[in-house]
Amino acid sequence: MFKRLMMVALLVIAPLSAATAADQTNPYKLMDEAAQKTFDRLKNEQPQIRANPDYLRTIVDQELLPYVQVKYAGALVLGQYYKSATPAQREAYFAAFREYLKQAYGQALAMYHGQTYQIAPEQPLGDKTIVPIRVTIIDPNGRPPVRLDFQWRKNSQTGNWQAYDMIAEGVSMITTKQNEWGTLLRTKGIDGLTAQLKSISQQKITLEEKK
């Protein structure tokens, strides 16, 4: 169930391209415009997507990853294993993690069937560096609404905000991946996880038929 919630949630996290980005210092504006741009692209490019579902990787690479804190999220997933990894191991892992996100997020976007969304009203940021933004996803086919909290983090150097995690039903996506990959990290280390991520990233994206 959580895996499905995570995939549905990713439908609204794909941010804007650099040329049309919203105010990078306001995570609420980023979330709002990102959702609108993403849904528009999914709707307008269905012919290309249906002809070649792996085209979704391109959308992810162009529109999402430049505005997601990939390395920060990847380091959180590694936890204690990050500090013990060599620079070469980290570089290989982050490259594999990025390719994994292209496949995983692309597969999530393949679930698009006309969903709509509501974003919580903007709250004062103050001096906060981590801000959760509640998004409610509404399914046109009558499924119950899904309420999610996207975690946005302020870059201490640039002042810009980027998304790095999502919490559904009190469970963090980062925590879920830590639990899912924990045994592999304990037995085969970061190299074993890197190899698995490379394998997963090679899987073809498949479209979910409308139910």
Rank of each mutant, 00 (worst) to 15 (best):
K3E: 02
P145R: 06
V131R: 09
T86A: 08
G170I: 00
S201M: 09
E99R: 03
I190W: 03
E33D: 11
L42P: 02
V146W: 14
Y112P: 03
Q203F: 13
Y55G: 09
A19V: 07
Y105P: 00
W161S: 02
Q196L: 06
L109D: 02
E180P: 01
Y81G: 15
F39S: 02
N52R: 11
I133F: 06
E169M: 06
R98K: 08
R50K: 12
A120I: 15
S84C: 12
A9N: 00
R186W: 02
V131I: 11
A22P: 10
T136E: 07
T20G: 13
G114I: 09
Q157A: 09
V131H: 09
A195E: 11
P15W: 09
D54Q: 07
A85D: 04
D127H: 05
L76E: 00
A21F: 05
V77Q: 15
N160G: 09
R153S: 01
V70T: 12
F150T: 07
I174D: 12
Y93N: 04
P47Y: 07
N52L: 03
A108K: 00
V171G: 00
D165Y: 01
K198T: 09
K128D: 07
L64H: 00
K102V: 14
R143T: 03
Q89V: 07
A34C: 07
L10Y: 07
A168V: 10
Y55F: 07
A75W: 00
V60H: 01
K3A: 00
E209P: 09
Q69I: 02
P87E: 08
P66I: 03
D165S: 04
G114T: 09
L76N: 01
Q202I: 06
F2K: 03
Q178D: 03
D61E: 12
Q103W: 07
L64Y: 05
Y93L: 04
K37N: 12
Y117G: 04
K83N: 06
S17P: 11
A110P: 08
P145E: 06
A95L: 14
K198W: 13
Q178E: 12
A85Q: 06
F94V: 07
A21P: 13
L101H: 15
V171Q: 00
L56K: 02
L109P: 02
L197W: 09
G170H: 06
K204G: 13
I137H: 01
L56I: 14
L56T: 07
K83C: 02
R41W: 02
L184H: 04
M1G: 00
I133L: 09
T129I: 10
T206M: 13
A96E: 12
I59H: 01
M1C: 00
K71Y: 03
Q118A: 12
R153N: 00
N179F: 15
K29C: 12
R186Q: 01
T38M: 12
L78F: 04
I205L: 14
Y55N: 11
Y28I: 07
I49E: 06
D23L: 13
S201Q: 15
M166I: 09
L10S: 03
A110H: 15
T175K: 03
F94H: 13
T206P: 14
R98H: 09
K177M: 10
Y72P: 00
A51T: 13
M173R: 00
W181T: 15
M7Q: 04
Q107M: 13
Y100V: 15
A120S: 14
G170Q: 01
L65T: 12
L65V: 11
A120G: 09
Q118P: 07
Q80E: 01
T176N: 03
Y164Q: 06
L56N: 05
I174V: 06
L64S: 00
M7V: 06
Q123S: 14
Y55H: 09
E122I: 13
W161H: 04
I119E: 10
N44W: 11
A75S: 11
T58V: 12
E180I: 06
A21C: 04
V131E: 06
M111S: 08
Q123M: 14
D61C: 04
Q202K: 11
G106C: 13
V135K: 00
R186V: 01
T20F: 14
Y100C: 13
S17Q: 14
R98D: 14
P27L: 05
I138V: 10
T175M: 12
M173I: 10
K43R: 10
I133T: 08
M173E: 00
F150P: 01
R143V: 03
R41K: 09
T38Q: 04
K188A: 08
T25R: 10
D127W: 15
D54W: 04
P124S: 13
E99S: 10
Q24G: 13
G182T: 13
A22L: 09
K71L: 01
L101M: 15
L30I: 02
M31E: 02
A120N: 12
T38W: 05
V171H: 00
L185Y: 05
A75G: 05
A73N: 03
M7H: 01
Y112G: 04
K204T: 10
T175P: 04
L11E: 00
R153H: 03
V12T: 06
T176R: 00
M31F: 03
E45D: 10
T58A: 09
S199V: 14
T58K: 07
P132M: 14
K128E: 06
L184M: 12
A21D: 06
L16M: 11
P87W: 05
T206W: 11
R147E: 01
E63L: 00
H113M: 04
Q151I: 03
N26Q: 08
Y82W: 08
T187M: 06
T116Y: 05
E122A: 14
E209Y: 13
A18Y: 10
L193F: 06
R186D: 00
E169D: 07
A120H: 12
K29I: 15
Q46E: 11
V60W: 00
F2G: 02
P15G: 12
R4K: 13
M1N: 00
T129A: 10
G142A: 10
K210D: 08
Y55R: 13
F150H: 08
D191W: 03
N155G: 02
D165C: 02
A14D: 04
V131M: 13
A73W: 01
G142R: 09
Q123R: 13
S172M: 00
E33F: 06
Y105S: 01
A92H: 09
Q202Y: 15
F94G: 09
T176I: 05
A22E: 12
G142W: 11
A73Y: 02
G159F: 07
G192W: 03
L148H: 01
A168T: 11
M111C: 05
D149R: 01
N26W: 05
P15L: 10
R153D: 01
P132N: 11
T175L: 10
Q107T: 13
V77G: 15
L207P: 08
K3Y: 05
Q80M: 08
T158Y: 03
I138C: 15
A51L: 14
Q115T: 03
G159H: 09
A168P: 15
Y164H: 08
T25C: 12
V131D: 04
M31T: 02
G170M: 03
K37W: 07
Y164M: 07
P132H: 12
K29M: 13
N141W: 06
